Simulated assay, not measured.
Amino acid sequence: MSDEAPTPETWQDLALSELRQQRDALQSEIAELSNRRDQLQQDIASSFAGQSDSIARRVKGFQDYLVGALQELAVSAEQMDLVVQPLVVQPSPLDQVAAEQAAAAAAIPTAPVAPTGLFSNDEDLIRERLASFQGQPDFYADPWKLRRSLEANGAALLEDWFLNQGGRGAQPSSGSRNRNALTTAAAISILGELYGERFQTLVLAGMPERLGEWRRGLQDCLGLNREDFGPNSGIVLFERADALIERADRLEERGELPFIVVDAAEAAVEVPILQFPIWLAFAGSPSELALEDDLL
């Protein structure tokens, strides 16, 4: 056997052979890892798609359930008898005579009863002004006079508020603060003709942004300046109900009339507000209130 030392060419061949073996092993591992990666991606994609489909089916099912429930509730509400039927009690013989006498008295014709309320004597003026507000807008009217055109639903709202509610009650919101400001401006214009400078408008809206919308809306509709909004001016804006109530009390002590307006975003009307003779609260719809919550 020969004990000759390997030549450089032999060492080079051995090194290249080992490198080739390592390269083949690495390529095999890389190929295996690539296959596992592709499999994992397929599993993730199929799992996510399955979960998405499942979630979508659940959401769609819950939506269908809500729609069906609301439709059933609406049908039930329409069919519900909301008038409580009085309990019929058979009168005694002694009461029968009194009942016959009362029926005979009721059969006698009587004069129609005139409507009651703070504005019952001003019905003609109120109807005339509401009709004129629905015509062409008077952009150059004097300050404190309505300069914009009032929509028919706003005129109907004010007619009900003035003549049926006597200037005290809640009315549905017109859908936006600008429209509610327009309706309020029409009311202020009419109240100005009836009471002159003896009344002051107090607006309650719980945030500065809302009060800013009220100020801009009333300023535009009535041709006012910024100086017309302040403690000693015709319109005062409030974020808190207690401050508004205190101001209204002071006005009444001086013999003046507070006209209180409550923004549609207010959750409720404070009980002390109900004691004042003129107040208008706008009741916001659920969608309108939800939009207000989203803007917060």
Rank of each mutant, 00 (worst) to 15 (best):
R240T: 00
L204F: 03
N153C: 14
Q41H: 11
E239C: 07
L280I: 04
S47H: 14
M207C: 06
L224W: 02
G175Q: 07
L125D: 05
L16I: 09
A205W: 00
N178L: 10
S189I: 04
I126T: 03
P137F: 08
P172E: 05
P137H: 11
E292I: 14
P208Y: 09
A69G: 11
S173N: 04
E288L: 06
T183A: 13
A156C: 10
P93N: 09
A185F: 06
I190T: 05
D249L: 08
L194I: 10
E246A: 13
E270S: 10
P91C: 04
Q79R: 13
P143T: 02
Q165I: 00
I108M: 15
L257Q: 06
A181H: 00
A264C: 03
L40G: 02
I235W: 00
D228P: 01
D122R: 12
P8M: 11
G192N: 10
A264E: 02
N178Y: 07
T110R: 15
R240W: 04
Q41M: 10
Q42C: 07
R247K: 12
E227I: 07
D3W: 14
F133L: 05
G154E: 07
N35I: 07
S28K: 13
L224S: 02
E256S: 05
D122N: 14
S287A: 14
A105M: 08
L194H: 05
G255P: 01
S34D: 09
L73Y: 09
R37K: 04
S54E: 10
L16R: 12
E256W: 06
L125T: 08
A264D: 04
V84K: 05
L16H: 13
E253F: 02
S189G: 09
L237S: 03
A267E: 15
L182M: 03
L14K: 13
G284F: 00
A283N: 13
P86F: 05
A241S: 10
R240K: 09
M1V: 06
V203K: 00
D138E: 15
A283W: 05
D294Y: 11
Y140I: 09
L163M: 04
A69Y: 10
A264L: 00
D124M: 13
Q22C: 04
E159M: 10
R148S: 15
G166M: 01
L251R: 02
P231Q: 07
S120A: 15
L280E: 01
D138I: 06
L251D: 01
A74R: 11
L33H: 08
L150Q: 06
D294E: 14
L146E: 03
R226K: 12
E151H: 13
A106R: 15
G255W: 06
I278Q: 00
